[in-house]
């Protein structure tokens, strides 16, 4: 059993049980999501481990990661703040909203904050044009959606996430 399998043994067994044994490779997407849960990216080791579990070539697993935009093979921010700036959203002020967020975070588009918490990026349609400005936060194995946003409300979301990280760090220190 490889490292990734050992780390998430229960979850992996549950996922694999959903597919017939000869169609193991169908589990590639759920396993990739699982690998991305802790640090929001899929490491080369996790890639190799998933390939081994599913009896696929590493190249084929990597190809799935490459195809889907919500899988990442680069270690960036713990939270990815993804703002739609397509035309309908732009008409509702998404561009200025995005610029304001970048300014507040002190990074440019695609950049990561120095504390490693946030990566901010422009994305294509999030399917909520009528409630723009809209963004989603991907991290901690979840995707959360925020609609009808202003810079102020978005910053509250960011502050809450930052607070969560601080609390976690404190409780870790306390435990140690």
């Amino acid at each position: 059993m490889n490292a990734f399998h050992a780390k998430y043994q229960t979850e992996i067994e549950q996922i694999l049980a959903k597919y017939p044994p000869e169609r193991k490779r169908s589990a590639v997407m759920p396993l990739l999501f699982l690998a991305q849960r802790d640090d929001n990216y899929i490491s080369p080791n996790e890639l190799a481990d998933i390939a081994e579990i599913l009896e696929m070539s590493v190249t084929d697993v990597a190809s799935v990661v490459g195809f889907y935009t919500l899988f990442y093979d680069q270690h960036e921010g713990r939270y990815r703040i993804q703002v739609c700036t397509d035309l309908p959203c732009a008409l509702r002020g998404a561009e200025t909203f995005f610029e304001a967020l970048c300014k507040e975070l002190g990074v440019s588009s695609g950049g990561t904050t120095p504390d490693g918490l946030f990566t901010i990026e422009e994305v294509k349609c999030l399917a909520a044009c009528h409630r723009a400005p809209v963004f989603q936060v991907q991290g901690d194995g979840e995707i959360a959606y925020y609609e009808n946003q202003t810079a102020e409300t978005a910053l509250q979301v960011i502050a809450a996430l930052r607070e969560k990280a601080v609390q976690e760090a404190r409780s870790r220190e306390g435990a140690a």
Binding site: D60, A62, S63, G66, F67
Partner: peptide, 21 residues
């Protein structure tokens, strides 16, 4: 049946990659 080449990304960013060792 040695699938050591594949596409990575899509659309205009699509590329040929190998991850085998």
């Amino acid at each position: 049946d040695e699938p050591v080449l594949s596409f990575y990304h899509r659309g205009r960013s699509m590329q040929i990659v190998t991850y085998s060792d």
